[in-house]
Amino acid sequence: MNVFRLLGDISHLLAIIILLLKIWKTRSCAGISGRSQVLFAVVYTARYLDLFTSYISAYNSIMKLVFLAASYGTIYLMFIKFKASYDHNHDTFRIEFLILPCVLLSLLINHEFSPLEILWTFSIYLESVAILPQLFMVSKTGEAESITSHYLFALGSYRALYILNWIYRYYAESHYDVIAIVAGIVQTVLYCDFFYLYITKGIYGQ
């Protein structure tokens, strides 16, 4: 564990908590892409199956459970409890165009052709594009509530911090994982446009 990865995990946790609070407090999921939330739940499910087979540390297991619970909790709030406020009309990104290529790519490019490894690779590829429906929805509505933009900033920062973690681990532990690094860079690059807007103008309201 290093400070970059710790800050990244905290940023990730913060993003998920901000989202849950936003939906719970405002009793509305307006402006939030349910499709992205479904993709995140798929990502965590495919990646954290090793929760039952290999124990890394208490921190690792607890965080995996928290991410899984929070992502399914968000889906419950969006599609069941506050279903009436879900903005179908603007959440239209075709997620099958994200899932299928990730499935194919994970079968073609992976470290080991075993079920757990393929699922992990699929989750890494899918996570890198999982935010697209949300960014697409923000661009379509032309704005985002301030709380939603804070959520996106924290979520985008988490993987950017992980890139620093991978640089650190490469020099300090000569450990690196090309698949995670390339996907992580793609994921962070996708936020660049949003980061620019968030930092220069705070995109909410304009």
């Binding site: 890394i56 690792n60 995996k64 757990l116 490894e117 992990w120 973690n165 450990h175 994982d177 995670a180």
Partner: peptide, 10 residues
């Protein structure tokens, strides 16, 4: 198997 152990990141 070594890869499983190495996967200590979330």
């Amino acid at each position: 198997v070594s890869r499983r152990k190495e996967k200590d990141e979330l």
